[in-house]
Write a protein that binds this DNA or RNA. Structure first.
Lengths: 247, 247
DNA sequence: CGGCGATTTGATAATGGTCAAGTGCCGTGG
DNA sequence: CCACGGCACTTGACCATTATCAAATCGCCG
């Protein structure tokens, strides 16, 4: 059975980072019918205005959700890691008010609303877990808003790095103090409300110069977790994870 | 029966703006056991770090939720109007990651988690409606993030005005093109990520000068809805209301 | 009438944006 | 194997939106 759906490992890892699953619930997730698909980087999965009839499970790779202004500026409001269903909300809200896009090459699994609703009916605790996940999403938005509205570029950036490392750690994507880093500086800017130029300068002058991190095109190493946490005023409580904070 | 709980009128008006209620559901809401209380302006109802065992129904008046930076700057991430339960999420997320505060004098009704969970069990469609409400909340956050990260002060402000008028209209708080306006310029700044001074200048130089609005301490009149909408790039779809847009 | 918070206005400073140009890295094709 | 092309990153110079500091006025409530 399991062999038929190796795709659910990341889903289960993610769910277990925010709730405790029973054996039955785990089994139900493992049997979740889905249509797997490979996608290239920078491809829209659903767009603002769409009325999807299925949700997208991110099996492997990274994705983001964003909105755009009339003059073409983009604001990314969330990044998604393997195991997440970035658009569960489409179950309850018909029309997309934003777009979902791959950041890297991705493996995704499409699950119909019908299947998910059936799952929620049969396993009310899973329904609550999905609700909980959307609520944590909203909590992340709130902290980002605090940064966008009231913090300096360097602090905002440090907070963002702490958040991503903590979330990745929860699903086993961090090795010691190092993790894969799939984001370009342009994407960082679109998430932090900064220009690419300023992202670059902030990384150089505030984070790398202070020895807080080592960041290459594809890898992030946190050299001084306490320093980074302090600069970003990061407190992981809002992620409401079952297991606490990265080291 | 009804006489015992005149407090549920605004709740029902709000619920009906986002879902269609059956008679039974309406009755269940009307009988909702709660402890009513009067609160002064600018009083915290729950604080970041609390682990509340009840939710707060806003019966009359306006409230806001906010976070603060270490150096005391405040970011308001939502305003709440009568009929809303700003902290429903505490049902599923134990620890508050932000604070809830009155903006004006308020009448609130405290409903225990127990009572709300029982209500959700007995009326699954109401549970879904609450979920839906938290999702709309998140949609509002996303649009605010677009403003905070990527729009100019004037556009952000115009969008905010459009949003509030549209939401108030949905629960009958708008008279023609005029509504009560309970927010100070400092509160506006804390919501829009601007200094009070700049809020004032933006109102003067961009919105009033262009004849878009008339704003006094306590009243807002929209003189040019289309102009305001245009400036704010406002499209009410994201509010996912059952009845569309203000006039 | 007095007092205090909210609003308004002026002057100056700073964070971060824009424009421009150059470097480095990596995959592709000859 | 090496040259080419494109994209991401980097750096410099200049500019603009918005913050900060300071002070005056308005308006409401007691």
């Amino acid at each position: 059975m399991e062999a038929l759906h190796p795709h659910t490992h990341s889903l289960i890892a993610k769910m277990e980072s925010i709730v405790t699953l029973s054996g039955e619930e785990r089994a139900a997730l493992q049997r979740l019918p889905m249509q797997a698909q490979e996608l290239r980087a920078d491809q829209d999965i659903v767009r603002e205005g769409d009325r999807p009839t299925r949700c997208c499970l991110l099996i492997e790779g990274f994705a983001c959700r964003y909105n755009m202004t009339a003059d073409g500026k983009r604001q990314i409001h969330s990044f998604h890691i393997p195991g997440e269903i970035p658009d569960v909300q489409s179950l309850h809200i018909g029309t997309m008010d934003h777009s979902l896009q791959t950041v890297t090459r991705c493996t995704v699994g499409f699950v119909t609303h019908e299947v998910l609703e059936d799952l929620c009916d049969r396993c009310p605790r899973l329904a609550r877990a999905f609700w909980r996940e959307t609520l944590i999403d909203a909590a992340i938005f709130r902290k980002w808003m605090l940064g966008l509205g009231r913090k300096q570029a360097s602090s905002r950036m440090a907070h963002f790095l702490c958040e991503m490392v903590t979330r990745m750690k929860a699903v086993g994507l961090v090795e010691g103090t190092t993790c894969a880093w799939p984001f370009t500086q342009t994407e960082l800017g679109d998430a932090l409300g900064l220009s690419t130029v300023h992202v670059n300068r902030t990384l150089q002058d505030e984070l790398r110069a202070a020895g807080l991190i080592t960041l290459t095109k594809s890898t992030l190493t946190v050299n001084d977790w306490e320093g980074l946490k302090g600069l970003g005023e990061f407190d992981p409580t809002y992620l409401h994870q079952v297991f606490r904070e990265a080291a």
